[in-house]
Structures are given as structure tokens and as C-alpha cells.
């Protein structure tokens, strides 16, 4: 219960919302999907500023960037044009399994990021996708996702800050996300999001006979792997540089899995042993790359 809550505000413009938040100082919070706030026991908050009436739920795909406004829901992401875009695949995959359907219908990308939990899914995808987060108070500033997730985002946001949009650079590559839970929409025991670009020599979706062999064992020009469900916040895998530009045969994938395993130290989770979650993180990373490659080739993959 929000014991001290006395009022709701329903601004219709960003300016109004930001002003209302600023005015109330630490006693007001933005309210998006409410899936986390409604059941929280925040004893400080007195005013909730409903930000779902600001018209900030669009998802725009431009030639140089993808803009996801803060109130786009997980369900909205899965139904948007992102679903057909290989490079945004990781976020669509993540949104598809971010809890049960009733939650996905309500939870917003802004809320998911602001209130990042150890098992949260969209933030892992956003980390792999090098998102830039647009934060508005009186003025706008943009913070890279890697920086934002150095500590818990709620700490990086000062009272009055509103995440208004999440911007993804157009990569021309492909991405994918996978998680392991006990059921499909369970909180992640481990998750992995990868973003890849494939060597220029191999063009997206084309299959000439000469390149066919190459296409079966393509080479990456970019690889970024983010892992979730293992630590309090999503983490970025490091030391993967050597894998870029090398033929992606079985050994390549096993090396990737080993590299991942060797660098994660999962925090305790009663539901499964840490050693298991570490092993699976490697498998998920490997398979997410496979899935992204398939996507890049234009082959249908079950999300």
C-alpha cells in the first residue's frame, strides 16, 4: 500500500508533467503502467503523476534511429513494426516474455528501465542494442544505457527526471534475446541479448551460390552480448573482441559460451544453483547469436 498517497495528477503535456514532478520534489513519482507501483510499499510518495496521457507511446522507425517513447508497452512493442526488423529482434523477443500477458499489456519501457529488477528483460535487450535514454526535466539530456546501468537507474534519475524516450541507433544488423525460466514467462534465471552485424561481404538476406558457403559460417563485424537474471543489474559481456571477424563454426560458438561462463558470477537465487545459471548463460548467449544470425539471413525463427 502507498500509505501516504493523497493525490493523482493527470497532466497532458510533458512540460506539465515535468513541472508537477519538480514541484513536489521527492514526494511525487511518475506513474506509467503501474505494474510495479500499484503493489509497492513506498511510504514516501504522496503524489502520483500519471504519465500515460502525454501521448508518449509511439514507436518510430527512421532511417537513422528507432525511437521508443517511454509509455510504449511490452505488448505494444510486440505488435509494432519492430517485430519485422531483425536489428530490433532482441527487444521484441524480450517484450514477448516479460511476464504474463496482463503485465505485458501494462508495463512500459520507461517503467521497466526506471525500475530495473534483476530479472527484468527489456533492459537486457536495450543494453545489447546500445540504447540511448532520453531524460527530461526542464531540459533534455541523453544518457547511454551502459552508463545508466552502472548503478540502479532509479539512483541515476534525480527526482523530477522523466525518461521520455529510448533511442536505438540503426545498426543494420540483427539481434535476439533468450531467457531461461521454469516456464516461458517466468522471471529469468538467466537471460542473454545479443546484437550482431555481419561482415560487409555478406549482404542481408541475399543468397548467391558463391556466398552460400560463407553464409553458412558467416563472420561478425560487431558483437555485443548483454546478460540478465544473474546479477542485480544487466551486465555487458566483455572480452569478446577476438570473436569478431572469425568464422563462426562450432568452435566459435563454444568459445563464446565459455567466455560468457568464465565471466559471470551469479548472485544467489533460491530457484536454481548459481553454477547452473552460469552454464545456461553461456548456452543462451550462443543460441541468441544463432538466432540473430538466422534472423539476419531472413529465415523465420520462432520468437
Amino acid at each position: 500500500m502507498l500509505d501516504q498517497l493523497t493525490d493523482f495528477l493527470y497532466p497532458t503535456t510533458v512540460e506539465e508533467a515535468v513541472e508537477a514532478l519538480a514541484k513536489a520534489g521527492g514526494k511525487a513519482l511518475p506513474l506509467a503502467g503501474g505494474t510495479s507501483l500499484a503493489l509497492s510499499r513506498n511510504a514516501r510518495v504522496e503524489v502520483l503523476v500519471d504519465i500515460t496521457r502525454l501521448g508518449l507511446d509511439r514507436i518510430d522507425v527512421d532511417s537513422d534511429r528507432i525511437e521508443i517513447q517511454c509509455c510504449a508497452t511490452a505488448h505494444g512493442i510486440t505488435r509494432s513494426s519492430l517485430a519485422d526488423l531483425p536489428e530490433a529482434g532482441a527487444l521484441v523477443d524480450a517484450a514477448q516474455v516479460s511476464g504474463p500477458s496482463g503485465v505485458r499489456a501494462a508495463m512500459t519501457m520507461g517503467g521497466s528501465l526506471a525500475q530495473c529488477y534483476p530479472w527484468s528483460d527489456p533492459p537486457v535487450a536495450l543494453l545489447a542494442l546500445e540504447a540511448k535514454v532520453e531524460i527530461t526535466r526542464k531540459t533534455k539530456r541523453t544518457v547511454g544505457i551502459t552508463k545508466l546501468l552502472e548503478q540502479h537507474p532509479s539512483k541515476a534519475l534525480t527526482p523530477g527526471d522523466l525518461i521520455t524516450a529510448i533511442v536505438l541507433p540503426r545498426s543494420g544488423g540483427a539481434s535476439a534475446f533468450l531467457k531461461q525460466g521454469l516456464t516461458v514467462t517466468d522471471d529469468a534465471l538467466a537471460s542473454a541479448a545479443v546484437s550482431i552485424r555481419i561482415d560487409q561481404g555478406q549482404e542481408h538476406g541475399k543468397k548467391s551460390t558463391r556466398r552460400k558457403k560463407k553464409a553458412e559460417a558467416p563472420q561478425l563485424s560487431h558483437l555485443r552480448v548483454a546478460l540478465g537474471g544473474l546479477r542485480p543489474l544487466p551486465i555487458l559481456a566483455t572480452g569478446l573482441e577476438d570473436l569478431v571477424g572469425r568464422p563462426m563454426d562450432d568452435a566459435w560458438y563454444e568459445t563464446l559460451a565459455d567466455l560468457i561462463r568464465s565471466q559471470v558470477r551469479p548472485t544467489e537465487d533460491a530457484r536454481a544453483p548459481s553454477a547452473y545459471r552460469r552454464t545456461v548463460a553461456g548456452v543462451l548467449a550462443k543460441r541468441a547469436v544463432q538466432k540473430a544470425v538466422e534472423r539476419w539471413k531472413g529465415e523465420p525463427t520462432p520468437v
Binding site: 504474463p100 521454469l182 516456464t183 516461458v184 517466468d186 533460491a270
Partner: peptide, 29 residues
């Protein structure tokens, strides 16, 4: 057979008394 179980701490307290972490199957499973 696949997921349902009570997890206890060393004092006999159930650690997962919620649908959130005691998983029963839904349509996607």
C-alpha cells in the same frame, strides 16, 4: 512433474509462496 515445488530455508520457512515463483503452467507452456 516439471516445476512445482516448495523451497524451504534452513528454518523451515517456505521461500516461494507466490504464483510468481511457484510456477504452474499457462497456455504457452
Amino acid at each position: 512433474a516439471l516445476t512445482e515445488q516448495y523451497l524451504f530455508d534452513s528454518a523451515g520457512r517456505m521461500k516461494n509462496p507466490h504464483f510468481r515463483d511457484y510456477k504452474i503452467f499457462s497456455t504457452v507452456d
